[in-house]
């Protein structure tokens, strides 16, 4: 019994079980829920969440109360930038991706500088940045939807590319590999964990902690920008609040995935499972015809419930 309890507290196990239960529950509620093409669809939506959560997880692992609340508006900004650069032209997809990623990376770096140089708490810094970017977007777009996805991008996100899976899933797999490589096979990754675990000790081994942390926020911005490109590929066009709905889920996915909000632990595979589990939950709730507010309540409750569960674990370990 005690062993089952510790096993259940293991984030990866918990996320996997949640995925199976939600799949089975969805199938019971609405036959066809777990069919192949539906699952592919769910994975596509999971990928969009999973990419933004990659950046979020980096910032959280880096510690010192790391969190990025600006990912929502950076997704919107990425979608807006990409949509306007390509404006429906296939040949402009690459410049669009570079522009979206470049702009959001730069803003992420500004977040990082605020957190490291000015010592603004991440919550406040990224919240402030959220306001600034939101206002900027309204001015730039004059409040109207603008920009169009190129047909090839939409196909890449929505249509089967290989083995019945759309291209975005291969991109997600590539990102997962890059995240693993970065965190487990480069000194950058080891330094991120060290810094998240004990910043003072990390600095006393010579690690450039401020630089590292600034880069983490830059990467979070970059991942949010790429997510924005995927979002406009998914929906075809963008409106200025398209990214808002991803802020809370990006944090919940990170927590479900076993990344401690205190920093210094967790990995991206857990976050991948977390993104899938959360997307499934969202889907089941939609099948139940729950309104938006109902889903928000359940999401928030899931986050708080997980904090309670893992928070206790953490205390026991120390």
């Amino acid at each position: 019994m005690a062993r089952i309890k510790t096993l259940l507290a293991e984030p990866l196990v918990l996320a996997s079980i949640a995925i199976l239960i939600l799949l089975a529950g969805g199938e019971l509620l609405s036959p066809g829920f777990a069919r192949g093409d539906q699952v592919t669809r769910l994975l596509t939506v999971s990928a969009i969440l999973g990419i933004v959560a990659a950046g979020q997880s980096l910032v959280v692992i880096g510690g010192r109360e790391g969190i990025d609340l600006s990912v929502g508006v950076l997704i919107s900004l990425g979608a807006f930038t990409a949509g306007n650069v390509m404006d429906g032209v296939n040949g402009a997809i690459l410049p669009a991706v570079l522009a979206a990623g470049g702009v959001t990376f730069a803003i992420g770096i500004v977040n990082g500088l605020g957190v490291t140089l000015l010592r603004i708490p991440p919550l406040v810094m990224t919240l402030g940045m959220m306001g600034v970017v939101q206002g900027g977007l309204v001015v730039l777009s004059r409040g109207a939807p603008s920009g169009n996805a190129a047909p090839m991008l939409m196909g890449f996100v929505n249509q089967p590319l290989l083995l019945g899976f759309p291209g975005i899933l291969f991109v997600w797999a590539l990102i997962a590999f890059v995240m693993w490589f970065l965190l487990r096979r480069t000194s950058f990754g080891y330094a991120v964990y060290a810094m998240g675990s004990n910043e003072r000790a990390a600095a006393l081994t010579g690690m450039p902690t401020s630089l590292l942390r600034t880069i983490l926020y830059g990467l979070s911005g970059l991942f949010a920008g790429l997510t924005g490109v995927c979002v406009i590929g998914y929906t075809g066009n963008s409106f200025i609040s398209v990214g808002d709905q991803y802020v809370l889920p990006s944090i919940i996915a990170v927590v479900i995935g076993g990344v401690s909000l205190a920093g210094g632990s967790g990995n991206y595979f857990g976050v991948v499972l977390g993104a899938i589990a959360l997307t499934l939950l969202q889907s089941v709730l939609t099948t139940l015809q729950l309104e938006f507010w109902g889903r928000q309540i359940i999401f928030g409750a899931v986050l708080l419930g997980l904090m309670l569960l893992y928070g206790r674990q953490k205390q026991l370990r120390i």
């Binding site: 080891y190 964990y193 060290a194 675990s197 004990n198 000790a201 006393l204 632990s265 120390i318």
Partner: peptide
């Protein structure tokens, strides 16, 4: 010095 919660390997490697 301690990188709490991390492995001995990581604590040496830093």
């Amino acid at each position: 010095a301690a990188l709490h919660g991390r492995s001995i390997f990581e604590n040496i490697a830093a």
